[in-house]
Design a protein around this nucleic acid. Structure first.
Length: 626
RNA sequence: GGGGCGGUAGCUCAAUUGGUUAGAGUACCGGACUGUCGAUCCGGUGGUUGCGGGUUCGAGUCCCGUCCGCCUCGCCA
């Protein structure tokens, strides 16, 4: 390499005219007019037009080499900056000038690339993009995301470490297996045959121990691993902004996080986040049917159980019989829930509303009852029409009042036990919002960023399959201060009481997506024992799994609380993408494969032997010929 | 593990009910061209229709299996 750049491709302006300078970069495009050649040269900082022109001193051999240049060749050039003769190109910051090349060095000719890294037209399919990720990342839109992600990390450290006294501390990646929650990735240990490390699902236990160690305020940008099937917003390997604070109560840490969100959105997008509303878990479930409500649109859920009980509609009556003796809001008590859809009578066709039953069934309910409320041309009066109209018509005034109905509305009903009905109608609400086109796009189009802090989660819920109690957050989450005594005194089989115990946990929700979650931690031994007991862990088992934490907590643990942001999801919001793979440089596919490096892969037998590992996998024999 | 969508030239896509030699744009190769800027114009190369079976006179198209990618349910303390 002889030609080293003196400037970048994004740097040259009119003030550089007349200077002799050098650039390095990739050929972004070429326009060969025979005796006049233009090259757009690209590096990370911009694009600069190069000109090869014999009348301006380009030698014949230079023209020959230049005419062979193709997109994605890597070159160095030296020449003189001048004002463009052909007029300005407003697309580029360097568009007023061009570089008249007098010396050219081809640093690396490219093979014909499978696709060109531009943002014109259709992208190649994702399989190709992932296989040639280094080409995909050259695309301007991906370069922008890489830049935003880097800036975000800087902003996070600036706020927490720079402005608020947090200490950045790294925790181990080779970690003790604590098989609660998500499935773990295991790492065999060569030095201790037959034993394993696990990769951390999160550094939860270490960060609590760091509080005992007087870190006081800890932060880490931390890679976490969960061996569960990916989704559009989930990867097996992902990044958390992990935090923990000593000597705080819930409101302190929540305020600190609210400050962070404000600083982050201001710095990244120059957006002023208004004060963030708190909402209880119960209100979220009652009004939105989900613990991470999307408050960008209405379509609020109403409980109309009492009204429904007075109809003759069998679907309602059957549902309301369920769990009659349970307390209100108990997951097993029958309820009838409804959503009023303004303008739905016209937009939601029969075909669409029929589809809602199919949509809702997987969530455990029998179906979705519908009715239209429309003006009757015959009488000039509004009336219920289609669906379950005949059951509602006798009580029309009551329903209109309860739901605030106006002509042109459609009403959707779900009737079942509280738990399943709530979940089903919450999912339905989101689907209806999409069908009605009432979900605004945030950011550039002026749509809202709706933040919400959800509090007062239940401590426990019954696992549907095993029937065992599981911690809704994790086993170190404290009950809310006023709940501790009731919790300690509750009998293990007293479902109704235990279900009603509320934790000191909190989630931060943005536009219906959970971006952070955390809790005040238990530092009372009696409470911790009770949690383990409920989770079905004997004192011995608890000690075996968590002895180091329990021991640490016994040596003067400060009251502490923490939270973790899903950094990749945060970046999805900032970048305006629906796909988590877009904000990760080298993401994995749905089976956890890296299409570029072709991981996972087989390893030599010797390597397994050194680790005392034998595979039980037997490849299926090819199907016999029929 | 279940459900859905997809896989045709390097890339993006087309191909009538199962019917002639599987086409187009782009990239690439060759040629022309002195002011373009996603240059333009002319010509050309390029195909195991993911893979393996089956049905049929005949399969890109229908059937079975399988692999890969995406979406989703389960799962994600």
């Amino acid at each position: 390499m002889k030609i080293f750049r003196t400037h970048t491709c994004g740097q040259l302006r009119v003030e550089h005219v007349g200077q002799s300078i050098s650039l390095n970069g990739w050929v972004n495009s070429y326009r060969d007019h025979g005796n006049l050649i233009f090259i757009d040269l690209r590096d990370r900082f911009g694009i600069t037009q190069l000109v090869f022109d014999p009348e301006d001193g380009s030698q014949k051999h230079l023209m020959e080499v230049a005419s062979k240049l193709r997109s994605e060749d890597v070159i160095g050039v030296t020449g003189k900056v001048r004002v463009r003769i052909g007029g300005e190109n407003p697309k580029h910051a360097t568009g007023k000038v061009e570089l008249v090349v007098t010396d050219l060095e081809v640093l690396n000719k490219t093979e014909n690339p499978p696709f060109l890294p531009d943002d014109y037209g259709q992208l190649p399919n994702e399989e190709i993009r992932l296989k040639y990720r280094y080409l995909d990342l050259r695309r301007p839109s991906m370069q922008k995301i890489l830049g935003l992600r880097s800036r975000a990390l800087q902003t996070i450290r600036e706020y927490f470490v720079g402005n608020n006294g947090f200490l950045e501390i790294e925790t181990p990646v080779l970690y003790k297996s604590t098989p609660e929650g998500a499935r773990e990735f295991l790492v065999p240990c060569r030095n201790v045959p037959g034993q394993f490390y696990a990769l951390p699902q999160s550094p939860q236990l270490f960060k609590q121990i760091l509080m005992v160690a007087n870190a006081d305020r800890y932060i880490q940008v931390c890679r976490c691993f969960r061996d569960e099937d990916p989704r559009a917003d989930r990867q097996p390997e992902f990044t958390q902004i992990d935090l923990e604070m000593s000597f705080v109560r819930r409101d302190h840490i929540v305020a600190m996080m609210e400050g962070f969100v404000r600083h982050f959105w201001k710095t990244m997008l120059n957006y002023d986040v208004p004060p963030i509303q708190r909402m209880s878990y119960r209100e979220a479930m009652e009004t939105y049917g989900i613990d991470r409500p999307d408050t960008r649109y209405g379509l609020h859920i109403k409980d109309i159980s009492e009204l429904a009980a007075r109809t003759e509609f069998g679907v309602f009556k059957t549902a309301l019989e369920k769990g009659k003796d349970r307390p209100p809001f108990n997951s097993k008590r029958g309820v009838v829930k409804a959503i009023r859809v303004p303008g739905g009578a016209e937009k939601l066709t029969r075909k669409i509303t029929d589809g809602y039953s199919e949509f809702a069934k997987p969530f455990g309910v029998g179906g979705v009852a519908t009715v239209k409320y429309i003006n009757d041309p015959a009488t000039g009066q509004a009336k219920f029409d289609t669906g379950c109209a005949k059951f509602l018509e006798p009580m029309k005034a009551d329903f209109v009042a309860a739901l605030g109905l106006e002509p042109g509305d459609t009403v959707l009903f779900v009737a079942d036990a509280y738990g399943v009905a709530t979940k089903a109608i919450g999912e339905l609400r989101q689907k209806v919002a999409r069908d009605m086109g009432v979900v605004p796009k945030p950011g550039a189009e002026g749509g809202p960023w709706n933040f919400l802090i959800v509090v007062d989660f239940p401590m426990f819920e019954r696992n549907k399959e095993s029937g065992k109690w599981v911690a809704m957050h994790h086993p170190f989450t404290a009950p809310r201060d006023d709940q501790a005594e009731a919790f300690i005194n509750a009998a293990e089989n007293d479902d109704d009481t235990i279900e009603a115990i509320v934790s000191a946990g909190y989630d931060i929700v943005l536009n219906g997506s959970e971006i952070a979650g955390g809790s005040v931690r238990i530092h009372d031994g009696r409470v911790q024992s009770k949690v383990f007991q409920l989770l079905g862990l004997s004192p011995e088992q608890a000690r075996e799994k968590f002895s180091f934490l329990l021991e640490a907590l016994s040596y003067g643990a400060p009251p502490h609380a923490g939270i973790a942001f899903g950094f990749d999801r945060l970046m999805m919001h900032i970048c305006g993408t629906e796909n988590i793979r877009d904000v990760i440089a080298f993401p994995k596919t749905q089976i956890g494969a890296d299409l570029m490096t072709r991981a996972p892969s087989l390893v030599p037998e010797k390597q397994l032997k050194d680790l005392y590992i034998a595979s039980t996998y037997v490849p299926e024999p090819p199907a016999p010929k029929a």
